[in-house]
Write a protein that binds this DNA or RNA. Structure first.
Lengths: 112, 112
DNA sequence: CATAAGAGCGACCTCTTGGTTGCTCATTAC
DNA sequence: GTAATGAGCAACCAAGAGGTCGCTCTTATG
């Protein structure tokens, strides 16, 4: 029984958004979204950052489960976890929906 | 011609996610999502934080346009901007969709 | 086997973040 | 008019983030 896809709350969502809150990390995710799993050196290319710097970012992304990694020989291949992005997306969805509902109720009151 | 609701890219999205990447700030947004615009002292209540601390968080939320403020007498009322949340949501939507599409194409290739 | 390639680990540095306190200013209430 | 309330500003502090370098370890490759 995997608990991987339960809903995020303020406490669990914050680290995920924090992980998304960096240009370089978003760039890494965008790279991974484009196709196959990629190794650290591959992801380092054209990133304007040292390999160790990239590793740090990938560690953060992995800790928040936005990516997963798999060792293949001497390489480590990173894969985007789109379901995790989905969880973050749904969190925002709920917040904005709640607000829109509140506004809607308020307007009805005013109209009466 | 307002440019407020154009699409986010990696550069413009990062600060928004960074703003969302803090428990306290998510709590503030949740509060604002519950109903009417609220002042700083109101938002401070039960936050376990000094008024100035809350002000700092609200400043960050306002700089990224997740909230707007309006002066009313000696108070400042903060309002949630649900469309901004929507922009962030759509950014995540695109990334995960792109990945899912890539995976789909890959599987088709394998099946052949 | 020797070497190259991919990655881990630790030390280090600087700038930013999240938080505080203290004081001042403006607006409302009595 | 005086007090109380809401907010701004500046200084300060500790901890964390983002980045580097240097060295070691492991896994191919020739």
């Amino acid at each position: 029984m995997s608990r991987r896809t339960r809903e995020l709350n303020a406490t669990t969502a914050a680290p995920v958004f924090a992980a998304l809150g960096d240009r370089k990390r978003l760039a890494l995710l965008a790279r991974l979204a484009n196709g196959q799993p990629q190794s650290i050196v591959q992801l380092t290319r054209g990133m304007g950052l040292s390999r160790q710097g990239v590793t740090k970012h990938l560690t953060i992304l992995e800790q928040t489960r936005l990516v997963t990694s798999e060792r293949v020989g001497r390489e480590i291949r990173f894969t985007l976890q789109s379901n995790r992005l989905g969880e973050a997306k749904r969190y925002l969805e709920r917040a904005s929906q709640q607000w829109d509902d509140a506004i809607g109720r308020l307007q009805k009151l005013v109209e009466k």
